[in-house]
Design a protein around this nucleic acid. Structure first.
Lengths: 250, 250
DNA sequence: CCATCGGATTTGGTATACAAGCGTCAATCG
DNA sequence: CGATTGACGCTTGTATACCAAATCCGATGG
């Protein structure tokens, strides 16, 4: 270490600051290009959330690379991406391992998420437009429809959509980004929650209240609803989660 | 794309979940081993916050690699890390560029940070121990000493320490991690704020109030102080920041 | 049964090669 | 004269080979 430092490095090859010329163009519809590492990361992400790769599974670079048809280089970069999301753990010289969430980790995650949700609600009430409210209202009703006909997958999808919209309505790109990152982390847990009828009813009712609060632009109230809403979800998840800790009781 | 997919992938080389055997050992004082990409990332981070690499600067892989004495592979992984922190921007086929924060980005960052600070305060009041309070109190007094003798660098350092302690006292590892990440992002801005005497006095006073609120374990009050405290900081930063937008008014 | 040792395996990092994308600049065309 | 096109060089994206160091695992011996 410390090979080439302590050098002034006043000026070298890097071109000086310059204006972004991409935005000067006609803002063409970007062909949604993506890099291989992101693609790999997305695949692995999916494999993890679908339970194809269980918590604690060790990810062998070569084998996984062969399996996915990519070389080690982009695969390693994909690992960094996933590690940044907190989905895998990178231990020096020991490689990557699918992260094993302790009960405390789950609690922590939901605690932060509930805080972010509350923040979203607060800000959303300040910035939301009538159109956005209308859309959120519509999605909520669709969601309640799913609830009425016991369509759990549909309910999940719309539920997610509603919360995303509220988050977007907050008008803070960073908040949206952080929210998305944390969501990816706990998304796999969501599916595992056992939803008894009572809890589900309650959750649905709360969504009605959310819309009311949003309509009234009552940030404090919306924040409070969102927070407790998510914390209940946390309990449901914890109930359903078979203790993953090595020490078992049976 | 789509080379080796659609394959069942029921079972392959990856070893099944297993218990972490490292923790079984005597929990030896980890020699704090680190990987090259993290080291590189840290260096670049520093170069960015110190203003050695200006916003918008394009990062050439080969040149920068030679300059830092590393090959492209770990450098590219370092780029991913920095991109995850939001310090650089990675555009496919166009490489890395030091991120250029718009005024809105700064506003967004501080808004989220203020929310996280508030969350920290709220939780800290629930979990903080007497020892932690004592330490935070002590640090605050040291900080006020720096304020009294106009020692701005010392003030910054201790200020940072106080806020870190409060965050830690919240007892939520994820919160600490997210907080740290966002802090890295805006740290470079902090230095640029123009601190007139009045604002500085006010900030110092608020720190006294923070300690009071913490002592009384008044989470709501502490949260509120922290939030407004940081939002003021945001204003100070925005005042001091020469508009970086391409379009200038002079 | 536990600790230790040694070889096989894996990761971390470097170097090299090459295809494809991007930027530039000049020649060409309208 | 201005805009478009095309060729060239540079940079990034990915693959591959290679090696050192660390880890893992099984065998051996106390």
């Amino acid at each position: 270490m410390g090979k080439g430092f302590g050098i002034p490095m006043s000026e070298f090859d890097e071109t000086s600051p310059r204006v972004d010329r991409a935005s000067a163009k006609t803002a063409a519809a970007a062909p949604e290009r993506t890099t291989l590492p992101s693609t790999i990361a997305e695949q692995l992400r999916q494999m993890i959330t679908e339970g194809e790769l269980l918590a604690g599974t060790r990810l062998n670079e070569r084998t996984l690379g062969v399996r996915l048809g990519v070389s080690r280089t982009p695969l390693r970069e994909a690992f960094r991406l996933l590690a940044a999301d907190g989905l895998i753990e990178l231990t020096p010289n020991r490689g990557a391992q699918v992260v094993r969430l302790s009960e405390q980790d789950i609690r922590d995650s939901f605690e932060v998420m509930s805080g972010l949700e509350a923040m979203s609600g607060e800000l959303a009430c300040r910035h939301v437009t009538a159109d956005e409210i209308a859309e959120i209202k519509a999605l909520t009703f669709e969601m309640l429809a799913c609830h009425a006909r016991h369509d759990l997958p549909g309910y999940y999808r719309l539920n997610r959509a509603v919360h995303d919209r509220i988050n977007r309505a907050a008008g803070n790109r960073l908040l949206t980004q952080v929210y998305a990152t944390l969501n990816r982390r706990i998304q796999n847990l969501r599916f595992r929650s056992n939803f008894d009828r009572d809890k589900w009813n309650k959750a649905a009712r709360e969504h009605t209240e959310m819309v009311e609060a949003l309509d009234a632009r009552d940030g404090t109230r919306l924040a409070s609803i969102l927070r407790s809403h998510l914390l209940q979800k946390c309990d449901a998840v914890l109930d359903a989660t078979v203790p993953q800790t090595p020490a078992r009781a049976d």
